[in-house]
Nucleic acid binder design. Structure first.
Length: 310
DNA sequence: CGACTTTGACCTGCGC
DNA sequence: GCGCAGGTCAAAGTCG
């Protein structure tokens, strides 16, 4: 069994750009849909302790009483800033509005914070590419963050709407926040991105460090691994996790099932975070080689070399 | 030559 | 209505 060693998760729907500044962390499923059979739910105890009623209301649409089939999917847990809560509530309200019958298609789509997205926080050592082919299409400095945010779109299929944003966490050195938006409308590519365009002579002073860095990363991206299992190979047993809005709990992969269970003792089986199926998608298919890919890469991530490509 | 990154300009949503 | 900030476009340049 492969053991993943990356940080935490949280499904974020309609998160704002302030995510990084507020330590929001991740949630690893691209194809999370309301039609999924298992949803988020929260225990009474944890609700009392960590969650406001407001948040509970917000997540109700995603709750599902499933008899206690729960899954812990990470090595640390995320938080949900209050701004996000507001955004989600707004989205919920908007979703209740009847869609216009007009056929007008705006050039720019709905603002991203109104879309479902998956936020993933990875340590530098854990950061690696997935198997999807991403093409960078923009980079913007983000207010409140010393690090820019890079924008990637799926380059495997022309019509694919999948997007990915990468930025370095300003609160935790060596931690990167990856946000996935929309879903892939195709199967995983068998080939990775090419190396073309990864090196530019525009930065004479940093060329060697940055570009060699990029090269090594992209090179590692090309390391292929078989399309393996797509779910739950993270080394954790099913579990229920709750977290304070502003509290982060680090759970190392060394934590065994019992330890984790003890942390959240008292949870109602019928109201647990049930995310096992949430992570059953293709998203994780590309993560199996994180360790292999990084153990062999020269990914000495630091602030001076960010942004980077992968 | 195709695929990619970079980067300034542009568009849109949102708060005041 | 205005200005800010985030997200996207597209031209230019790079690389295999």
């Amino acid at each position: 069994m492969m053991i993943m060693d990356w940080g935490l998760q949280a499904v974020v729907i309609g998160s704002s750009s302030s995510c990084s500044a507020n330590n929001i962390e991740f949630s690893p499923k691209l194809d999370f849909q309301e039609s999924d059979h298992q949803y988020l739910s929260f225990s009474h105890e944890m609700k009392k302790e960590f969650f406001s009623d407001e948040l509970e209301e917000l997540y109700k649409p995603f709750y599902h009483v499933d008899g206690g089939q729960n899954m812990l999917m990470g090595s640390s847990i995320s938080l949900i800033p209050k701004e996000i809560i507001k955004e989600e509530k707004r989205e919920e309200e908007q979703q209740q509005v009847v869609a216009p019958t007009s056929t007008y298609v705006p050039k720019y789509k709905k603002r991203k914070n109104e879309q479902k997205r998956v936020v993933l926080q990875l340590k530098a050592d854990d950061l690696s590419s997935d198997k999807w082919a991403w093409r960078k299409y923009g980079q913007k400095p983000i207010k409140g963050s010393p690090y820019p945010r890079s924008y990637y779109r799926c380059s495997s299929s022309k019509g694919c709407l999948a997007r990915k944003q990468v930025e370095q966490s300003c609160t935790e050195n060596g931690t990167f926040i990856v946000t996935y938006t929309a879903e892939h409308n195709h199967s995983q590519p068998t080939r990775r991105n090419s190396l073309a365009g990864t090196i530019k002579s525009k930065f004479p002073n940093s060329k060697n460090t940055i570009n060699s860095h990029k090269k090594s990363i992209v090179k590692d991206e090309k390391i292929s691994s078989p399309h393996g299992s797509t779910s739950n190979n993270l080394g954790f047993s099913p579990e229920t996790l709750m977290i304070d809005e502003f509290q982060e709990i680090e759970i190392n992969q060394e934590n065994n099932h019992e330890e984790i269970k003890n942390m959240f003792e008292g949870s109602d089986e019928n109201e647990c975070v049930s995310i096992q199926e949430m992570f059953d998608g293709d998203f994780f298919a590309g993560l199996e080689d994180i360790h292999d890919g990084f153990s062999s890469s020269s990914f000495g991530c630091n602030n001076s070399t960010f942004p980077f490509s992968f």
